[in-house]
């Protein structure tokens, strides 16, 4: 991400903040739900899209973040402390889950994360002093830097702010030595080893950073929904997040945001349409069906994600307006395309 892009990003974020008061409660709700999901998707994209470690326990990690933030917040701490604390706790759990990745590759690791997801779900129900079991942990509103921001607009501002910070941080990270090593490991572990990369340590860093972001996202989720209950962090949520980054585009930063928006807003829209037709069960079923079918159709036609669709559209526009700018642009997105391949 160049300086220009960062400036654009910050401008967009400021614009969102300025429009926020005019959006109404529902609008603000949509903004923060998408922003929180985007942070989670960004974390997962770092792990899957950039470091090549397929994970199906992201929902469980968000849960760890939610419970950690809830407990710290309920102990009377500031929301900032709670979010950072949740990030650290989740990073630790994420590294634990990543340990098998030092010995396992690809599919086998993916299945071991599936196991981690079920073990986490089980623990959420079991460790009652921290999680309050099946009934769920109620979370008190906490001040943010001493300010009372516990309303929809406040949450939206916090979430958008954190999303921008995460986007900038991850894009910077990808330009460092460590970020380059992530991509090398994704492309070929053997080559990485041959070039003297400490594969084990690098992978664990990917798990730690991804876990930290996931923990913050889960923490925000907990504060905004005021409850952390086990059924909110089941395998279905992990599947949703994998769907987000594939729909948005693997190994693409804007893709994480686009995918999160798509996956979060689609049920919201389907719900609205369904409510005009019939009962709750039918609405839920129709929503799921639309989601499933759209994912399949989408993957058949655009397996590289919405982001590649967008960059192709941009390229086509540039080609018709001016052939000179075309060359540089297309080689850049070709590089993105090869990077997107796992």
């Amino acid at each position: 991400m160049s300086l220009r892009q960062i400036i654009i990003l910050i401008t967009v974020a400021l614009a969102v903040m300025v429009v926020l008061p005019g959006l109404g409660r529902y609008g603000a709700y949509i903004v923060y739900v998408v922003a929180i999901a985007s942070i989670g998707a960004l974390a997962l994209n770092l792990l899957i899209g950039y470091c090549g470690q397929i994970s199906f326990c992201h929902g469980g990690l968000l849960g760890v973040g939610a419970y950690a933030a809830g407990n710290i917040g309920n102990a009377g701490q500031d929301m900032v402390v709670a979010l950072v604390g949740a990030g650290i706790v989740t990073a630790f759990v994420s590294v634990m889950i990543g340990l098998p990745a030092l010995r396992l590759r690809g599919l086998y690791f993916a299945i071991s994360t599936l196991a981690a997801q079920f073990i986490l779900e089980y623990l959420f129900r079991l460790i009652e002093p921290w999680t309050h079991g099946v009934s769920g942990l109620l979370i008190q509103p906490a001040p943010f830097f001493g300010l009372d921001l516990s309303n929809d607009r406040g949450y939206a501002a916090i979430a958008v702010g954190l999303l921008v910070m995460s986007l900038i941080a991850v894009s910077r990270l990808l330009r460092t030595d460590l970020g380059r090593r992530f991509i090398l490991i994704r492309d070929s572990e053997i080559v990485a080893r041959g070039m003297g990369v400490n594969v084990a340590r690098t992978k664990l860093w990917a798990f730690a950073i991804s876990g930290f972001l996931a923990g913050m996202s889960g923490g925000l989720l907990a504060f905004t929904s005021r409850i952390a209950a086990p059924e909110a962090f089941e395998i279905a949520l992990s599947v949703d997040y994998v769907a987000m980054i594939i729909v948005g585009g693997l190994g693409s930063l804007p893709g994480a945001v686009i995918g999160a928006g798509f996956v979060v807003l689609l049920p919201e829209v389907a719900q609205r349409i369904g409510e005009t037709f019939g009962a709750a069960t039918q609405t839920a079923a129709l929503r799921e069906m639309v989601f499933g079918l759209l994912i399949i159709l989408f993957l058949i036609h655009e397996p590289r994600g919405l982001n590649s669709l967008a960059s192709r559209a941009v390229r086509r526009l540039r080609r018709t307006s001016g052939p000179l700018s075309n060359n540089k642009r297309s080689s850049a997105s070709d590089l993105e395309m090869t990077q997107a391949r796992l």
Binding site: V239, A243, L250, M289, I295, L299, P303
Partner: peptide
């Protein structure tokens, strides 16, 4: 398509 995309497609079938 990439492996993850195919996995995801089978998950889409499950959801449907």
């Amino acid at each position: 398509a990439p492996v993850v995309a195919v996995m995801m497609a089978t998950l889409g079938i499950l959801i449907t």
